[in-house]
Amino acid sequence: MSKVWAIIRKDIVTELRTKELFTSMLTFSLLVTVIFSFAFGFSTGLVRLAVPAMLWITFTFAGVLGLSRSFALEKEGNAVLGLLLTPTDRSLIYFGKVIGNTIFVFIVGMIIVPMFVLFFNLGFQGTLLPLVPVIFLGSLGFVAVGTLFSAMAVNTRLREVLLPILLFPIIIPLIVSAVKLSGLVLEGKPLSEGASALQLLIAFDIIFIAACAVVFEFVIEES
């Protein structure tokens, strides 16, 4: 466990110093939100229906920027090889990277939501608190798959292109569930009304975290 924590701590310290992930993700999110709000105008009935989808489109594209940068930092000075030289189970490295990246992506997600509320003038009923577990579960599943593909893409010349091409088809069930649940919350309805979507989101996270942890060893090491 101390090894997982050391990786998380290293990533947090690095991010606090460089602010590369947050700056790129938040700037991108802000720009996309502004463009959406100008394109669609203030909240009308139709736009309101599309807001959850726009929210998750913004969230996932911003997340791809962060994930891409996350492994690029490991490649500077080939530091990742120093990590691979240690007698550390590769799944622990994966879990460390996933937890660190989930923290970053989740925080960005929690900042994007108020931005959408502000720019789309969403006069929602009830509370936004139920969005917290939705964004957390969405972040976790997104990062679980994204961390694997980011490690795979980092050694290629077209990593910025390859990562979204590999990632987005896989996370379609996650996006569909997250959009549905976010829509319910924004309409002031309880999450229990989307129980099947919530179950799918949780199942996605469990299955892909387990599968990616096993596959990560083969992705990160040379054959």
Binding site: K3, K10, T14, L73, T86
Partner: peptide
């Protein structure tokens, strides 16, 4: 060098020591 550029010398060696 296989070192993290954005960590200090101490943080690097401590990190690898932990690993």
């Amino acid at each position: 060098p296989f070192l993290y550029e954005n960590l200090s010398a101490f943080e690097n060696i401590k990190f690898f020591g932990t690993m």
